[in-house]
């Protein structure tokens, strides 16, 4: 079985995003960029499935400017077999991403598509679900466990208040949550080998997709700072305020 993994280039999770001076976006100039952590977990899961003999090939795909080939190479260094880069000037909206990916899925015919549940820049949490809908295939979102049982994939999902397991027909989409696995480090020899693994570059036009605009980003602002409230003088007063004023207990 072939596995397709999607990866996104985002700001490194150690780096705080900073809103730019004219409030049009965050300032990413010379900021450390990295593989989206949830995508890294997706890559790791795919490699583990390959190592366990369940999968035969792991293909990674990324969409964005040329620089995102760096994240494809990182994924190849972690153990993926080949890469596909769909080159666009900017980062397309989720629905466009899903449409581009649908074309890749149709061409590659993977049995499983593993994606991060969300990217830590836009925090949308939607592309995997959208892709599943476009392909009319099932999804296991927020996965903390993925198992192939018979001709189905069983996905344990982290839902509010517990865990839910669903059985999905194949092909299916899995989106990863933090506890699915702990990604490995890429070794130096593998980083060098990754430079020679195949990487194909395509454009949205090659795939026959026209990128549509569904929304307009009007402004980006720093979150409002919290203001100091009041001082209370006793536990009694505190409890009274929490009960009657804030209504949180």
């Amino acid at each position: 079985m072939k596995i397709l993994v999607t990866v996104k280039r985002v700001i490194d999770y150690n780096v705080k995003a900073r809103v730019n001076a004219d409030n049009t976006d965050v300032d990413l100039a010379n900021t450390k960029m990295a593989l989206n952590p949830f995508c890294e977990i997706a890559v790791e899961e795919a490699i583990r499935l390959k190592e366990s003999g369940t999968a035969t090939e792991v293909v990674v795909v990324s969409i964005g400017p040329k620089a995102c080939q760096e994240q494809i190479r990182t994924s190849l260094a972690l153990g993926a077999d080949r890469g596909i880069h769909i080159e666009t000037d900017s980062m397309p909206e989720s629905l466009n991403v899903a449409k581009l990916l649908a074309k890749v899925v149709n061409a590659e015919q993977p049995g499983l598509i593993i994606m991060g549940k969300q990217a830590i820049d836009s925090d949308n949490n939607q592309t995997g679900q959208m892709l599943a809908a476009l392909l009319d295939i099932p999804q296991g979102t927020f996965a903390s466990k993925v198992e192939l049982i018979g001709d189905k994939v069983h996905v344990t999902r982290e839902v509010d208040g517990g865990l839910q397991t669903v059985a999905l027909n194949i092909p299916a989409i899995v989106t990863t949550d933090l506890r699915l696995n702990e990604p490995r480090y890429a070794s130096l020899p593998n980083i060098m080998k990754a430079k020679r693994k195949p990487l194909v570059v395509q454009t949205p036009a090659d795939l026959g997709i026209e990128l549509k605009t569904h929304s307009k980003l009007l402004k980006v602002e720093a979150p409002a700072e919290r203001q100091a409230g009041i001082k209370v003088n006793s536990i009694e007063e505190l409890i009274e305020k929490l009960k009657n004023e804030a209504k949180v207990i």
Binding site: E182, P183, R184, Y185, S187, L188, P189
Partner: peptide
């Protein structure tokens, strides 16, 4: 050694 353990390399 944790799960993610990777031995260093000699260069």
């Amino acid at each position: 050694e944790k799960d993610s353990y990777m031995q260093g390399m000699e260069l």
